[in-house]
Simulated scan of single mutants.
Amino acid sequence: MFQAKKNYLIAYGFLLPWLIGLIGLVLGPMISSLYLSFTNYDLLTSPEWIGIGNYTDLFGDRVFKKSVEVTLVFVIVGVPLQLLGALLVAVLLNQKLRGLGFYRTIYYIPSLLGGSVAIAILWKNIFGLDGLINDFLAWFGIQGEGWVSNPNYAVYTLIALAVWQFGSSMVIFLAGLKQIPMELYESASVDGATAFRKFKSITLPLITPVLLFNLIMTLIKSVQVFTSAFIVSEGTGGPSNSTMFYTLLLYLKGFSYFDMGTAAAMAWLLLIFLGLLTAVVFFTSKYWVHYGD
């Protein structure tokens, strides 16, 4: 009996640092932000309880609605393109090619750079008025423009940046492709199946669990895009708020306008949206995800 209690104490002793981190760095801030979302709080004075005022004000805020619209465009257009590009490149890199390790590294490097400030600045210069894109178009006599400053195209330049950084999804797809038995492809070849038929009937169904994982992770990442939008628009959201992503507005509300109550409300709305979105994806996955059984 004494030895069992001693073992429990030792176990809880090892768990204690994690429990402290969970309570102090996760649960504590979450509870505080939930409380602040129902208050008027400017970081300088004590919070003032206003109930659901922050939430009702948000739904009447034109800039908030624009941020939701821009973010949805980014997700609806960008996520499928990211997954499609990652899958196609993974299929190509799954072939027996010379210098395969080099190609895998080259395609993965953009993901290592991730949402760095340097890459965002580079992208801004590439699509700027005097950037590489316009220099290329000038060879064909086409007069370019400042793509990142044009409200009609700005968000699509950021989508292009996100699609370029598909390396992480590609590596996961590649790992999934490696698990498909070669016997299936050999049998299909004997039956005269074309490469497209093999991809449609063998590759795609067998990597749907991997596709589900990549879809969820890419959705979560896309909804939370911030660095590229902040750098490209210099923290303003761009002309006509064309790059005013949800997280950028959240940051501005909290740390530029000192409206931390509204920022906390936006954070909780984002959490609820991501939870519902993930739940919908999991629910619908039973219709298109195929496991070993």
Rank of each mutant, 00 (worst) to 15 (best):
V232G: 04
L161S: 12
A86V: 08
E186R: 09
L249V: 10
F102K: 01
I31T: 14
F196T: 11
M170C: 08
Y246A: 02
F166W: 08
P47M: 02
W18H: 07
G85R: 00
F230V: 04
V63I: 15
T39H: 13
W268N: 09
F127W: 09
I109R: 08
Y246S: 04
A279H: 08
V281Y: 09
G21R: 07
F245W: 07
I121Y: 13
Q179N: 15
Y153V: 11
G254I: 13
T278L: 02
Y251A: 02
K65A: 15
E234H: 07
F282W: 12
W164H: 10
Q95G: 03
W147V: 09
Q143F: 01
S285W: 04
N134W: 04
L25C: 09
L219Y: 14
V89S: 04
A279L: 14
I52S: 15
N241H: 12
P205G: 07
N125G: 13
A160G: 14
Y153C: 00
A162I: 09
Y8F: 13
W288M: 04
A229W: 03
P151I: 04
G254N: 04
G78S: 08
S67W: 08
Y257L: 14
Y103L: 01
A120D: 07
Y246E: 03
L43V: 11
I180C: 02
W18K: 05
K66F: 01
I216S: 10
G131K: 00
R104D: 01
F14W: 13
L36D: 11
Y55R: 02
V225W: 11
M170G: 01
L34H: 11
L276T: 14
L211R: 02
L211G: 11
V26L: 13
L249T: 04
A162M: 13
V163H: 05
L129G: 07
